[in-house]
Nucleic acid binder design. Structure first.
Lengths: 130, 130
DNA sequence: AATTCATTTCGTCAAATGTCGAAACGAGGA
DNA sequence: TCCTCGTTTCGACATTTGACGAAATGAATT
């Protein structure tokens, strides 16, 4: 019963549903999810922990960044069915549509801003201050 | 997104999952659910409210008693799929097996105890006291 | 080795949740 | 009409949960 409970709890929050929807198209960096949901990094981190614990997503570290993607075809049937349920029931959801548009903008940013800047890089002047 | 959220929240509690499993075989009186789960009537009532609000169960009043059953074939697809998910993922769950055995005993009780007695009927002596 | 910076962990707070008991409700029966 | 009794609502309480900021972590770079 614990597997189902973990999945149900993971799906019982709007922010976590939005994360799953954002990952529908493919892998995303955590900082991109932070930019999309506009929540504190620590909050996103907690959501991702719960989603990982439920087996719904997987993480992959690459250098300084951590990427997330949905659990794939090798995941347990329950997980795959839960993800399918989310997709089907939210296919026409306005929040999903809005987030998809915003995500598109985020992904279109120039590479130099690698991850969507939480705050812009500090200037030389700022760096020299205490 | 609200429909899915309500369902996920409803499924995110062990007692409510046990109620859904108990209703797999068919309709049950609320007092039978109280006897099965051994929770306060007010607690069961709250659980049933959340399950009803999610559309997962329906209620039917018959005289003094209220009966519950799962949402049927006329329920939205999301509801039917969620119930199917619960059944499949908990088919071999030990809690489900144990509850099924206990429910069998409860249903086998003589009809005179109509609903499983929370407390036995008061004696004439008790009735005459303040 | 020190620095940088994306991410996580920790501490705290407010809000939501599960539970209970007491009281209210409401349908039948006396 | 009054009583009985299954169920619901209300109020209280402890636990859990979502959110934040501050501090810790850790991988690259300098």
């Amino acid at each position: 019963m614990n597997a189902l409970l973990a999945i149900a709890k993971a799906l019982a929050d709007p922010s976590r549903l939005r994360i799953l929807l954002a990952l529908e198209a493919g892998e995303l960096c955590i900082c991109q999810l932070i930019a999309l949901l506009k929540l504190a990094p620590s909050t996103i981190s907690r959501h991702l922990f719960l989603l990982t614990h439920a087996g719904l997503i997987e993480r992959r570290q690459e250098g300084k960044w951590v990427y997330c993607r949905r659990a794939g075809a090798r995941a347990p049937r329950l997980v795959r069915e839960a993800l399918a349920l989310v997709d089907r029931s939210l296919r026409d959801d306005p929040i999903r549509t809005r987030d998809a548009a915003r995500l598109k903008k985020i992904l279109a940013r120039p590479v130099e801003e690698i991850c969507p800047p939480l705050k812009r890089a500090r200037t030389r002047k700022e760096r020299s201050l205490p």
